[in-house]
Design a protein around this nucleic acid. Structure first.
Length: 350
DNA sequence: GTAATTTGACCGTA
DNA sequence: TACGGTCAAATTAC
């Protein structure tokens, strides 16, 4: 299939730094949030639980410093030139009566671009191990390269909400900038770690905050009603969970002994056959389970958290194959992930 | 024939 | 009103 993606136009030449800058801003916001939480949290935080508070602070300080340097180095006046729009009218549809009898419309559109829950990676191939179906392509304002929109192939049959956007790197045409949104809830065997939960015993009390990311199940406390067999993807932790820890260095700062120590209940099933990201996520979840109260790690602004307002494009990103693409971990004392107005919400009742 | 891709239209947000 | 994300008819590939 040839990619006859509409004509190209002259490049503004500032697009590549802008992409990098956006990513840096996101990470910077996350680091700032982390610092605030570390200093404000009256109860043991995730770092405290791991006995690494000072290390985390040092790491954060270093991150902030590096990010500031990088951002200032990249800082340019990157306002795109005016947009153009070509209208060539190939066909017509919906005859103007869309509002009355048309199909269900989406609730929002542009929010994704501002969501902190975006996992952007650079890749030389579009194959990330998941099956995607392209549903759109657009030229966007600040890049000479069109952006392609993909959703999970299993969306129609399984309602999987994962999407991704692919754009050819302006700097390196052989490279793709892929942004992942949402998480895979499909049962594609190639993307889901095989997990057989142990249903014979309820999870211990200290696993009260154990959360599974599957878009369908949460384990909230020992009295959770979700004690029946979990679907395979219930423990297929999305990369978002591990993303932040990976980016922020947690993955290397948690000794294996602690990893083992934080395991409890069902996530033990992740121990051997799961991909590294899932194991890392298990560490996070296990840590939360050992805490008496909250751990909120991530770059989400306040409004993204329970009690806050507004929207969230998605929780976790989909599951890129590369561990380096892992992104933000999110969690909250209230036990919900995402936005109540979105179907990416993962909540539980303590 | 079916599935995937292309691409203009539609629509919500800023 | 411009922009970006999604829809869905038309087209292409298998």
């Amino acid at each position: 299939m040839a990619s006859s993606a509409g004509g190209r136009r002259s490049p503004p030449a500032t697009a590549a730094p802008r992409v990098v800058m956006d990513s840096l801003i996101e990470v910077h916001e996350g680091a700032t949030k982390l610092q605030t939480m570390l200093e404000e949290s009256p109860t043991p935080s995730i770092a405290a639980a791991a006995g690494t508070t000072s290390k985390v602070r040092l790491t954060l300080d270093g991150m902030m410093s590096s990010l500031s340097s990088a951002m200032s180095a990249l800082d340019t006046t990157g306002a795109g030139a005016g947009g153009s729009q070509q209208q060539q009218g190939r066909r017509r549809r919906r005859g103007g009566a869309a509002a009355v009898s048309g199909p269900q419309r989406r609730s929002s559109t542009r929010r994704r671009s501002h969501s902190p829950f975006v996992n952007t990676v650079n890749a030389s191939t579009l194959d990330d191990g998941n099956s995607w179906r392209k549903y759109g392509q657009k030229r966007i304002q600040q890049s000479p390269n069109p952006r392609s929109y993909y959703r999970c192939t299993h969306r129609p049959d399984q309602g999987c909400r994962a999407t991704r956007q692919v754009q050819t790197s302006d700097a390196n045409p052989s490279e793709f900038i892929i942004s992942y949104f949402g998480q895979h809830t499909c049962r594609d065997p190639s993307t889901i770690p095989l997990v057989i939960p142990d249903d014979t015993a309820p999870p211990p009390d200290d696993c009260a905050n154990l959360i599974s990311f599957g878009g369908c199940t949460t384990i909230a406390g020992a009295s959770s009603s979700t004690t029946t067999a979990l679907p395979p993807q219930a423990l297929s932790f999305d990369p978002t969970t591990a993303m932040l820890l990976s980016r922020f260095g947690y993955s290397s700062s948690l000794p294996a002994a602690q990893v083992q120590g934080y395991r409890c209940g069902r996530e033990e099933a992740l121990s051997s056959s799961s991909p590294p990201a899932a194991q890392l996520a298990a560490v996070v979840v296990g840590s939360a389970g050992t805490m008496t109260s909250s751990a909120t790690v991530g770059s989400a602004p306040a409004e993204y958290w329970p009690g806050g307002t507004s929207d969230m494009a998605c929780g976790p990103g989909s599951f890129p194959s590369s561990p380096s693409s892992l992104g933000f971990m999110t969690g909250s004392p209230f036990g919900s992930f995402g936005n109540a107005g979105d179907d990416d919400l993962f909540g539980f009742d303590p």
